[in-house]
Write a protein that binds this DNA or RNA. Sequence first.
DNA 1: GGCAATCATTTTATGCTTAAAACAATTCGG
DNA 2: CCGAATTGTTTTAAGCATAAAATGATTGCC
Lengths: 172, 172
Amino acid sequence: MPVVSDCINMLDSETKAVETPEDHAEELRLWLRLLTCTTLIEGEVRGRLRQRFDVTLPRFDLMAQLDKAPDGMTLSDVSKRMMVSNGNVTGLVERLVESGHLDRRTSETDRRVQVIRLTKLGRAEFRRMAAEHETWIADLFADLTPKDVRELMRLLAKTKASAQKSAARRRP
Amino acid sequence: MPVVSDCINMLDSETKAVETPEDHAEELRLWLRLLTCTTLIEGEVRGRLRQRFDVTLPRFDLMAQLDKAPDGMTLSDVSKRMMVSNGNVTGLVERLVESGHLDRRTSETDRRVQVIRLTKLGRAEFRRMAAEHETWIADLFADLTPKDVRELMRLLAKTKASAQKSAARRRP
DNA sequence: GGCAATCATTTTATGCTTAAAACAATTCGG
DNA sequence: CCGAATTGTTTTAAGCATAAAATGATTGCC
């Protein structure tokens, strides 16, 4: 399948034909484009959250996780879901408890575990922000057709699976 | 252009035609998936760079920009290309000059401008890292067929354009 | 020619993020 | 049971990142 573009590349990259140690320029470009898209959208969302609600993106993301878990989550759960380090969550939670958005208590059954949940205030504020946030996202993706969206979902699922597999190879 | 699929969408999304306050759940899910993929890959690359070369991702990214510009770049150029704030670049460059990877000088023709370029050491180290980095990326995307890659490239280009348009609407 | 607007960069204040080490509570194997 | 892993969280040190204000240099417009 990639025959044509491979050949082109072999020719124009330096005409050294056979012994190329493999050409991964396409994947590299794909990765850069993926990163660019994400950075672009993330920056836009970050800016709008700050402007409209004076809230940071990490705070919003954390509240989003908790909004889906009415019974609360442990810090580890949050850290896994958000794909950030444990220490990161500790600090984030500290600040959100301080500002009255989160409630934090030690588990009855396992005193190592901290369970956090949204307070009434936290939930109300989050819902308000989430509603507007959803319209921003819709607007940012507005030029994609429903078919585009479906196709992207499919390809990104495949990408995620591929990356997870690769990551697992290195850390068995 | 999207007229046909819009209609399809109106029909198959729930046949509720007119009065929904609008449903953007699909776009939201797409955004989350995009973010997940990027975070996953970025984390993996970050970890490998640290393990193998004891270098951070931002340092690597900055060097990558400079490697493509043998005559150097201004800090503004770098900041635009990397899509990060000016102040961020200032600090990053400071540390890379300190460690001998970058050379920095004030422009002859405009004393506001700082031109930075890779030193011999910086270029050599970058090339060494970049070669390995390329194989990681190839591995992370290994399960995508060349057709998948092309299709993703196309859809992400469309996404980028859509997001840029949306961003421009808010900041004319 | 001079002064306002603009531009490139730096500084400041604050917050996010990580990796690694430290702590503390629980579980498990002998 | 009891010590050795394991697990959940926090701490630490360093670096990354942003927005906004400050600084210094250049340009453009009377």
